[in-house]
Design a protein around this nucleic acid. Structure first.
Lengths: 353, 353
DNA sequence: ATGCAGTTTGACAGCGTTGTCATTTTAACT
DNA sequence: AGTTAAAATGACAACGCTGTCAAACTGCAT
C-alpha cells in the first residue's frame, strides 16, 4: 500500500539517491538509468511523500497565496491561476485569506511561513502594497512576488537595500493605461461630463485608475471637476451610494457617464439608476473595470476593462518559481506587465443630445 | 532564527517528548509543566514544523477540500468555512478544484491524498455524490465528509459494507424542504402557474428542489405540468435560455412566476425578462435559491432561499475533525442537516390579476 | 595501456517531530 | 510507613526523503 523511495530503488537496482535525482529531475543522470527508475516508479505507483521531502530538503514544496479581497471572482481566479502552475511544478498551494487592517497581520503571515516552511509567497493587493509585510518577508529571506498596480518600468516601489532583487519580483497591472483607454472610449462616444466612482482609497489601483481617467479628460480638453469624483469602496453598495450621490441634482453637472472603479461598483450604479428611473445607456452610460463574470450578468451587460486575473496570477506563480529551489529552467516567457483592454458591451452608448 | 522542539525542551528543562505533548494538547501533563513549557514556547517564539509533524505522526496536519463548482461565491464560502475550522485546529487546507467529468478523477484525488498524507477530505456536490470516489476513499481508509442534498434521516446513500460509519459522515442540505417552502411562498402570493428552471440534472440538489416544488404544488391542488419545467444547468446563461423558452408563447400557460434552481439561474431569468420587457415583479415573480451575494446585486433584488454555505462547510470540517487524529473532544454541536430558509426580497410579488 | 578530468552513482547522516515503551513520580490506599 | 495502581515524564528509534561528499565509472588524450 505504501511505496517508499527505497522500494523503488531496490526494484530498479539503484540507490535511493538516484531515484531521488530522477524524481527531482536533477541533471547528471544517464538516460538509461532515468528510464529504468521511471519504469519502476510507474510499476510500483510510487508517490513521493511531500512531508518527507519538505523536511529533508532545503525548502518545502508549497507556496502560499495571501489575499484580503472580498471579491469572490477575483480570489477564485487568482487561486486557479496559481494552482495551475503549482500542479505543473508539483507544488502545493496554501491559501491564506486575511485582513489587511489587522495590525498583527505580518506576524500571522510569518507564523504561517515558518510552520509550513513555504518556498515562496504570492501577494495580492492591497497586501502587496504594505511595507511592513514586505520588510518582514525580506527579513525572513522568503521568496515572494507582488501583484501591483502600475508599470514595471516605474521605479521599484520598495525602499529596501537590495534593489536589484526588488525590481524583479513584481507583476504589474497597468490600471492607469486601462482607465485612460476606457475614459477615452466614453469621450469618443461624445460624453463630456464623466463621473468616476472610486474604490478604496488605500488601494493603489484606485489612484492609478483615477489618474488615468483624469489624464484622458485633460488630453481631450475636458475640465476636471472634483464634484464628479465619488470616493467609495470596491463594493456593490458603494456603487449604489456613489451613483445616488453623483446623480442627485444632476441638473448642475449633467453627468452622462459614470466610470465605476470596478464591476461591482458599476453594477451598483446600474442598480441605483434603475431606482431613479434612468435608462442605461440611453440617458446614462456606465462602465465597469475588471471584466469579472459579474459584468456579463447585469442588465444591460457592462462595458468594462478586461483583466485576465487567472493569467496574471499564473505569471506571478511562474515568476515565483523562477526564484525558488533549483529554478532549473529559466522561464523567459513571463509577462510582468498586463494592461487590461476595453470590452464594449451594452452599458455604454452615445451621449444623449 | 530557527527554533526546534529541542531548544524549547532545554529552555524549559524538560524532555522533547513533554514539549510535544504540550503543543499537541495531549492529556497527562501536569498543569505546572504545561505552563512551564508554554512559557518557553512563548519566549522562544517556537513554531512547530509542519513537515516534521506530518512525517513523524500517523496522519498529517492537513485536510483537503475537493470541489467542482463554477460558482465562485459558493466555492469561496466553502473554503472560508473549512478554513476557519482549520485555523482553530491548527491544520492546513489543501484545495483541489477538479472536473467531475474526468474519468481519472479518483486517481488524481488518490494521488493527492497519498502525496500529502491528508488527514481527511471534505467533498462538495457533485463529487460527493460519485460512488467511484467514495469507494476509492473507503479503500484508502481516509476519513471524509460528504456534503449532500437531502435529509440525514434518509437512508444512507452508500452501498458499502460498514454502514454504521457511512451514515455518520454526511452533512445534509434539505433542498426539498426549502424548495417546498419557497414554492409555498409563491402560492400564497396567489400564483397558480409557477415554472421551475432546473440546474444540472446530475446534481442531487436539482432533483430534490424539483421534488419539493412539485410536492408544494400538489399539496395546494395545483396541477403539475412538465411544460413548466425547464431542464438546464446552474448558470446565468441557462437562466436566460430557460426564461426565454418558458415565456415564449406564454399565452398558453400564463406563467406568473419562475422558480430558479439557484440565484444565477434566477438572475438569468431576470435578464431575459428585461429583454422581453416584462416587469418584475408586477408581471412576473422570480425567485432564486442559495442567497449568494449575487442575489442582492440584481435589480430588483432576488427573493431566495438562504443557504449558509460557510456555516455548512464549517460544520463539515467539524465533523471531519471529530473523526480524525485524537478526536480529543467530542464535538456535540455539529449540525448535520441544514434547511435553507426563504428570504423575501423584491423579485416576488402578488400574482397579476 | 595510462592518466586525467568530467560525469554518474552511492553510503550515510541528518531534517524536526512523534510513537513506543521503559522509567520515575505522584496519589490513594492499607 | 508500605504497598500499589495510576499519572507523568523521558530515551530513543523511526518517519521518508535529500544534502554532502566520497567512490566509481566514463571518455578522451596521451
Amino acid at each position: 500500500m505504501k511505496v517508499t523511495i527505497n522500494d523503488v530503488a531496490k526494484h530498479a537496482g539503484v540507490s535511493m539517491k538516484t531515484v531521488s535525482r530522477v524524481i527531482n529531475k536533477e541533471p547528471s543522470v544517464r538516460k538509461k538509468t532515468y528510464d529504468l527508475v521511471m519504469q519502476a516508479v510507474e510499476e510500483l505507483n510510487y508517490q513521493p511523500n511531500t512531508a518527507a521531502r519538505n523536511l529533508a530538503g532545503t525548502s518545502s514544496f508549497a507556496i502560499g497565496l495571501v489575499y484580503d479581497n472580498p471579491n469572490a471572482y477575483y480570489v477564485i481566479d487568482m487561486q486557479n491561476g496559481v494552482l495551475s502552475r503549482c500542479k505543473e511544478e508539483g507544488y502545493e498551494l496554501v491559501i491564506h485569506p486575511c485582513c489587511a487592517q489587522d495590525p498583527d497581520m505580518h506576524k500571522e503571515i510569518a507564523t504561517m511561513i515558518q510552520r509550513s516552511r513555504l518556498a515562496g509567497l504570492v501577494l495580492t493587493p492591497p497586501l502587496s502594497e504594505q511595507q511592513d509585510i514586505i520588510d518582514m518577508l525580506d527579513n525572513l529571506g522568503v521568496a515572494y512576488v507582488r501583484l501591483l498596480s502600475g508599470q514595471s518600468n516605474a521605479s521599484a516601489p520598495s525602499e529596501s537595500k537590495n534593489e536589484e532583487i526588488k525590481a524583479n519580483n513584481c507583476i504589474y497591472v497597468d490600471d492607469y493605461a486601462a482607465a485612460y483607454e476606457i475614459t477615452e472610449h466614453l469621450i469618443k462616444l461624445g460624453h463630456k461630463t464623466i463621473a468616476f466612482a472610486c474604490g478604496d482609497a488605500e488601494h493603489k489601483s484606485t489612484t492609478e485608475r483615477l489618474a488615468g481617467y483624469q489624464q484622458a479628460l485633460k488630453d481631450h480638453d475636458l475640465t476636471l471637476n472634483d464634484d464628479l469624483i465619488y470616493e467609495g469602496t470596491y463594493s456593490f453598495e458603494s456603487g449604489v451610494e456613489g451613483a445616488k450621490a453623483l446623480l442627485k441634482n444632476n441638473n448642475a453637472h449633467k453627468i452622462t457617464a459614470i466610470l465605476g472603479g470596478n464591476d461591482e461598483i458599476a453594477a451598483g450604479a446600474l442598480f441605483a439608476s434603475r431606482l431613479m428611473n434612468i435608462a442605461i445607456p440611453e440617458q446614462l452610460s456606465i462602465s465597469g473595470f475588471e471584466d469579472s463574470p459579474f459584468s456579463r450578468q447585469t442588465w444591460p451587460k457592462l462595458t468594462t476593462a478586461h483583466q485576465a486575473n487567472s493569467v496574471i496570477s499564473e505569471h506571478a506563480a511562474r515568476l515565483l518559481f523562477s526564484k525558488t529551489r533549483g529554478s532549473r529552467k529559466q522561464d523567459k516567457d513571463i509577462i510582468t506587465t498586463f494592461t487590461p483592454s476595453v470590452v464594449v458591451r451594452e452599458s455604454t452608448g452615445p451621449a444623449p443630445v
